[in-house]
Simulated scan of single mutants.
Amino acid sequence: MTTCELETLKGLIDSTPDVAVLINLRDYYAQRSLPEKGVDSEVVYECPRTQMMIRTAVKGTTIGRHFHTVCDEYVIVVGGKGEIMVNGEWKPVKAGDVHVCPRGIVHDTRALEEDLQYLSIFTPHLPAGTDINWLK
């Protein structure tokens, strides 16, 4: 490639990090320190079109019923067990399960018996502040 072609491609990059990402989840989770309760969450990739977080809902955690007004959320369960509220019903989830939740749909996640490890992918990117609308 010519210098000009490389500069054109570089001009397309608007992500953080600004390089391709390869993450070994087993190693990632093994090195992560978890809080005593709640959700451990780290943004590992973001751009104006999407955002990806690696998360753990610690045993005993219920996130709380909520919905998003701007973003669709994709939850990919990669370890542990828990439950996700899907269309008003709690459904058991384990590694290999995928939950697709369009904006405006109420959902919740809980890890009652063991930690639940998952990826959350938001599209478009979560707006500044938050896109979480909590329900009681």
Rank of each mutant, 00 (worst) to 15 (best):
M1Q: 10
E5P: 04
E7K: 13
T8N: 13
T8Q: 15
G11Q: 09
I13N: 12
S15K: 10
P17K: 06
D18G: 13
D18A: 14
V19E: 13
A20N: 14
A20F: 14
A20H: 13
I23W: 08
I23Y: 07
N24A: 05
Y28V: 01
Y29N: 07
Y29A: 03
A30G: 03
Q31D: 10
Q31Y: 01
R32Y: 05
R32F: 05
L34S: 01
P35G: 00
E42K: 15
V43Y: 11
Y45L: 15
R49N: 14
R49I: 08
M52P: 01
M52Y: 07
M52N: 05
M53V: 13
I54C: 12
R55H: 10
T56V: 15
A57S: 12
A57V: 04
V58N: 09
G60L: 08
G60S: 04
T62P: 04
I63E: 12
I63N: 08
G64Q: 03
R65M: 06
R65W: 04
H66P: 05
V70W: 10
C71E: 10
E73Q: 12
E73C: 07
I76T: 08
I76S: 02
V77T: 04
V78K: 06
G82I: 00
G82N: 01
P92D: 03
V93M: 09
A95F: 11
A95I: 07
D97L: 02
H99L: 14
V100H: 14
C101K: 01
P102Q: 02
P102N: 02
G104P: 04
G104W: 06
I105R: 07
H107C: 02
H107L: 04
H107P: 05
D108M: 06
T109E: 13
R110T: 00
A111W: 04
A111H: 03
A111E: 05
D115K: 02
L116A: 01
Y118F: 15
L119T: 02
I121D: 05
F122Q: 01
T123W: 10
A128T: 08
G129L: 07
D131S: 03
D131T: 02
D131Y: 07
I132Q: 12
W134T: 00
W134N: 07
